[in-house]
């Protein structure tokens, strides 16, 4: 099992072998999570702080649950109650927290690159839970695990990523991961929501759903991120749904066994048809949530091993 990273800031710095290591370990945590007693002690005695500078329910809950199941002491710090509101800078907050000797810091921040800045100031392992429109590595890893379990592999697949790509960190992390694993990637979006120069990533660009979905194995829908938009990128939600919302009719262009994914939270009737989202034969959206906890457990486990090794402690052979 190869995983050398000290922090998990993005997919960009992971090698294909490291990605496979995370997925292999996460597979075992999936089994643990399905037991009645979901207890491990790989993080026993360690302190995990979840710092969310941006509102989150599902990701924060997923990280909290992952830490608790691994036996860590988990603390949630939400910005609403924090000193950030009193004018403290991000670095001061980091230094203050660092003085309390946490072991794992899970950070979400609305600015791209903020988590990297924070990681450079602390001694513990930092996990990026999403920074601006930059990266969301655990989402890409959980998507990869979901795909691998549904398709039996995470190579040589045609993956269509559709929707608000410009504002999506999920899209960026997935783009990098799926590229590293040698998949064929298609981006489908109205041109106003396509980040400039993204074709240089080696993916194919489409502004037409039918053409972009042709022969796809995996269809990844993205949420329309209204909160990140300054002004109108699209004329209206109804026109967006008409042209870019996924429904059974548009999905017919993809392979008959294509799976449908969505990182959540979904806007039913905006980017995806509600009925399709609930179709257990096509939609793996619930599986994605399940895989999320397992992938985060695997990531924290691997980071904790490196942390202990870095501190000169012998990595305890804790395996599930």
């Amino acid at each position: 099992m190869i995983f050398r990273a000290r922090h998990l800031l993005g997919i960009e710095h992971l090698s294909p072998q490291e990605i496979v290591s995370v997925l292999d370990l996460a597979d075992r945590y999936v089994d643990l999570n399905r037991r009645t007693v979901k207890q491990s002690d790989v993080l026993a005695g360690m302190t995990q702080i979840n710092m969310f500078f941006e509102n989150s329910t599902r990701t924060q809950a997923s990280f909290e649950l992952a830490g608790k199941r691994l036996g860590a002491d988990v603390m949630n710090m939400s910005v609403a109650q924090s000193s950030v509101k009193k004018g403290e800078t991000l670095i001061d907050t980091a230094l203050t927290l660092n003085a309390m000797h946490p072991d794992l810091l899970v950070v979400r921040h609305p600015s791209s690159g903020a988590v990297n800045l924070l990681a450079s100031k602390v001694n513990c392992a930092v996990l990026n839970a999403g920074d601006g429109r930059h990266e969301h590595p655990t989402q890409a890893l959980l998507d990869a695990l979901t795909i691998r379990r549904a398709k039996g592999r995470i190579q040589r697949l045609t993956v269509a990523i559709c929707g608000d790509i410009a504002h999506s960190r999920v899209a960026r992390s997935n783009l990098i991961l799926l590229g590293k694993m040698e998949n064929r990637i298609r981006l489908i979006a109205p041109p106003t929501l396509m980040p400039p120069g993204v074709d240089a990533f080696g993916c194919e660009l489409f502004d037409d759903m039918a053409a972009g979905l042709e022969g796809a194995d995996v269809v990844m829908m993205l949420r329309l991120q209204r909160e990140r938009m300054d002004g109108g990128f699209i004329p209206s939600e109804r026109e967006y749904y008409h042209r870019f919302g996924l429904d059974a009719e548009k999905l017919a262009a993809a392979k008959p066994d294509a799976i449908v994914m969505h990182p959540g939270p979904m806007n039913r009737g905006v980017e995806i048809d509600g009925e399709l989202a609930d179709d257990i034969n096509r939609s793996v959206i619930q599986e994605q949530v399940e895989m999320g906890v397992a992938v985060r457990m695997a990531c924290m486990d691997l980071l904790a091993r490196n942390l202990r090794a870095g501190r000169g402690m012998k990595a305890t052979e804790v395996m599930v």
């Binding site: 109108g232 699209i234 026109e239 042209r243």
Partner: peptide, 9 residues
């Protein structure tokens, strides 16, 4: 001059 119309529709 603030928001585009539903050009597709």
């Amino acid at each position: 001059g603030r928001e585009m119309t539903e050009i597709g529709f």
